[in-house]
Amino acid sequence: MNIFRLLGDLSHLLAIIILLLKIWRTRSCAGVSGKSQILFALVFTTRYLDLFTNFISMYNSAMKLIYLVCSYATVFLMYFKFKATYDSNHDTFRMEFLVVPVGGLAFLVNHDFTPLEILWTFSIYLEAVAILPQLFMISKTGEAETITSHYLFALGSYRALYIVNWVFRFYTEGFFDLIAIVAGCVQTILYCDFFYLYITKVLKGKQLTLPA
């Protein structure tokens, strides 16, 4: 464990908590893409199947459980409890356009052709593109609530910090995982446009609006 990975995990945890609290306290999931949340729940489910077979540390197991519980709780709030506030008209990205190619790629490019490893690879590739429905929804509505932009900033920062962690691990341990690195770079690049808007607008107290 290194400081970059720890900060990355905490940023990821912060993002998940921000979103869950936003939905719970405002009793509304307006502006949030339910499809992205379903994809994130799928990412954690396919990645953490080894939760009970591979014990790495209390921290690792605890975080996996928290991520799983929070992501399913978010999906539940969006599609059941606060379903009336879910903006399905703007959340129209076709999830199958992501899941099918990612599933195929996981079969073709992986470290080990075993079920657990293919599912792990699937989760890595899927996580890289899981935010697309959310970014697509914001581009359609042309704006995002400030709390939602903070959620996206924390979520985008997590994988950016992981990239720094991978550079650090490469130079200190000689460790690198090309699949995670390539997917992590793609994932972070998808946020660049949003990062620019967040820094130039939200941090100046303005509403996050996309140029129509």
């Binding site: 990975r5 995990d9 990821h12 080894d50 591979n54 790495i56 690792n60 975080m63 996996k64 991520y67 470290h111 080990d112 792990w120 992981y162 962690n165 000689g174 460790f175 690198f176 995982d177 090309l178 995670a180």
Partner: peptide
């Protein structure tokens, strides 16, 4: 690419 036994990252 170290063929690690399992993935230790979240």
């Amino acid at each position: 690419d170290m063929d690690e036994e399992f993935h230790d990252e979240l």
